[in-house]
Design a protein around this nucleic acid. Sequence first.
DNA 1: CTGTCAACTTGACGATGTCAAGATAACTAC
DNA 2: GTAGTTATCTTGACATCGTCAAGTTGACAG
Lengths: 193, 193
Amino acid sequence: MSDNYHHGDLQNALLHAVGEIIEEKGVGAVSLREAARRAGVSHSAPAHHFGDKIGMLTAFARKGFEEFGQRMQAAADSADEVDAKFRAIGVEYIRFAVERRPYFEVMFRSEMHDSADPDFKCVSKDSFGVLMSVVESMSAEELNGADPMHAAMSAWALVHGLATLWLDGTLSQFTDEDLFTLVQGVFEADIKV
Amino acid sequence: MSDNYHHGDLQNALLHAVGEIIEEKGVGAVSLREAARRAGVSHSAPAHHFGDKIGMLTAFARKGFEEFGQRMQAAADSADEVDAKFRAIGVEYIRFAVERRPYFEVMFRSEMHDSADPDFKCVSKDSFGVLMSVVESMSAEELNGADPMHAAMSAWALVHGLATLWLDGTLSQFTDEDLFTLVQGVFEADIKV
DNA sequence: CTGTCAACTTGACGATGTCAAGATAACTAC
DNA sequence: GTAGTTATCTTGACATCGTCAAGTTGACAG
């Protein structure tokens, strides 16, 4: 498996390179040719494996969603009380966005992947399922009488909004340690609207 | 002002073209040359006015923030009660994202503009100011004892998350009429976390 | 040893962002 | 009104990009 063929495991090498490129120069700098260069192959080797640029990024997003789903599930399992689970998922969502920014950016930007890809749809749906199953196990009292779907969307939108505002630099006034204090504060704000 | 020079008002013509391109083919399809083509000028005329591609998009984002700020202010002024103002701002935020998607996408994606641009910083800060001033006029009871900053961030993150999840197609299961029902539901969920 | 097939390479094409250099129209000064 | 200046735009070039067609190379089956 190490070098049993021309390269060995080019697909993973290319996806690793994609992550590096995003980390160093942002999502806009991703290119098939640069990924190929970093993996030490010819400029059109990536297209052979992934079809085209979107295909490569979709594979990258899929890999991200697999890790993401596992982390969401682990967060849900880390607590016993349902509201603690709920909170843990929210914190882990933000943590993933900050720690694994390259993944997060490709996973949640429509023009960066092909959302019609069957595998992509599958792993992304699974991740949302973790949140939904937690919300569905909440009592009517814990939900304040809200529809579970609305409650899930509300929580998702809240953490997703925080994550994207943070990544887009709109919250650049805060350091990333402040971010989690902010998250805690936002979670506790619990304002009526 | 109409045709007093070679073109007349090329800058606005180019920004208009940018909006068209995004509407038709998405943010990824924006190019200096395509904008030039639509404005009927040579391929490097845009660079003369905007410096480079990021410069053109930053000008586009600035124009978007001007309209956005006015709509946020109008929403805040549309109601008397402070909580009605608060709600109106939230709905208008989503409405702007849906109705003026090209602007919204460029305004809130870090790689699509230069956030260090002084004018950009100014107009974007102004928009946030509308929300902050509404939150600051809320009583401690209306805030549920929350820090005003946290309350503002919470509300902003919620509507921003909904808007981006919607635009990115993650909520593609809903039609855009459903969206506002969803918004209403999310606003009323008011869950404790 | 030979044939088949997957994994790559090579070379080309049009499109893009950017830069340098030139052309042209408006404005200013006299 | 005419000469000079400046802002506006054009032309041409270059490296890089995504994509495609065709060729090459290595592994494996019979």
